[in-house]
Design a protein around this nucleic acid. Structure first.
Lengths: 223, 223
DNA sequence: CTTAAATTACTGACCGGTCAGTCAGTAAAG
DNA sequence: CTTTACTGACTGACCGGTCAGTAATTTAAG
């Protein structure tokens, strides 16, 4: 990390830290105002540099957007997968750990704005949306699908349509993040403690998955 | 409606239909591209008029945005409340009817893009967000809260923290709408049949609310 | 009836501010 | 001196908003 052959002068240190500083500033403003409504001057000012500096590190505003998505959230997914791989408890414990861990690593941090940003701009940047889908959504989905399947295989959960249920499991989590960056700041009356929200979601979910429940869903798509 | 003193010439008919045509075009483009990225020329072209016509009916781009929100979704809320008021079945039936009716009246129609639009732009238009909160979110919340409370009072549901649970009930519904206007069009692999999605949500929910379930949520906020 | 005047609904060229992107210049470090 | 990291004035395209003009229709006069 600090070999003597690489003199850690303050100027060089800045050079290396710049991209992170710029993407961090861009992430904050993109999530707050949206991509189109954010000016590069504002991003530069927030990072304490001038607009020209942005173009030393990124080719265009769109390239900056791509970098924001790429470098912000993919590392967090790695950690989630590592946690799931070495988990040893019950499927319910794993599911609970996934939800709470997501809140600690993504939801409650500066990364919490990424889902809202991606939702808002997916239509304008299909290739970034595709990247996000393949590297974030698919992997997150897979984590939950595996947990559900494990619980069903062990008899801990009743059989459900896993491919559909996974969306229902993830949706409240995503909405929590989106809410905090959209209507939450404006109308905060209903913004409860995120922990309690997640615990309630988990509680309803685990009980909804208990074996022996009678299905309320029509079996076939006859009607 | 058709008194002889008001000649229903094609020109006058257009005059009365224009605002709807313009807000419909604006809604489609706002939800697809976002407010800032949508040009007034495009809205006018989609409605088959020139840009100047927009300013015969709306003072500014922002006023058009407000009109889109106001006139699009509030009437749909009226219908939802009417349905709930005259409902006579069980609380579970009411909840199910609310979910499916929402899909028919809002989710599957052109109004389905409103949630995504509002989420994206709430930060830039606090007063519109406040209006949306007071006239759409609060009222929708209230419908679900009442249904939950009715079920708990009758013993049909176990006691839960209704003010938190309502968010968990609504979140998957909102995410369904948001998804269809964000990453859905880009990466459609996971976009299942909305009916099955809602039925699965309802199935998990009703079973999660059954009396006799043991709570997995910590009782107090001690930690 | 004919036809001129007035009104209505709409047009599209134009203006001015804004902002992504450029580049000649500066100053600190080596 | 050269190199490196950065600056900020500048430019040109774009877009929200304006308004003089036009065509369709109605009304009124001859």
């Amino acid at each position: 990390m600090s070999s003597p052959s690489v003199p850690e002068s303050s100027r060089r240190r800045r050079k290396e830290a710049r991209p992170q500083e710029l993407t961090a500033a861009a992430l904050a403003l993109f999530t707050e105002k949206g991509f189109a409504a954010t000016r590069l001057d504002d991003i530069a000012a927030r990072a304490g540099v001038s607009k020209g500096t942005l173009y030393l590190y990124f080719d265009s505003k769109e390239a900056l957007f791509e970098a924001v998505i790429r470098e912000s959230i993919v590392p967090a997914m790695d950690e989630g997968e590592a946690m799931a791989a070495q988990h040893r408890g019950s499927a319910a414990d794993l599911l609970r750990a996934l939800l709470l861990r997501w809140w600690e690593v993504i939801g409650s941090t500066s990364l919490g704005g990424v889902p809202k940003l991606m939702m808002s701009e997916a239509g304008n940047f299909p290739q970034v949306a595709r990247y996000y889908h393949d590297n974030v959504i698919s992997r997150g989905r897979r984590l939950v699908v595996d947990a559900l399947n494990r619980g069903i295989a062990s008899g801990e959960f009743r059989p459900v349509d896993v491919e559909v249920a996974v969306e229902v499991v993830i949706a409240p989590v995503l909405m929590l993040a989106i809410w905090r960056y959209s209507l939450g700041p404006c109308c905060s009356e209903e913004l409860h403690d995120p922990r309690r929200y997640l615990e309630t979601h988990f509680d309803l979910l685990i009980n909804g998955l208990r074996p022996g429940a009678k299905s309320h869903a029509p079996i076939a798509a006859g009607a």
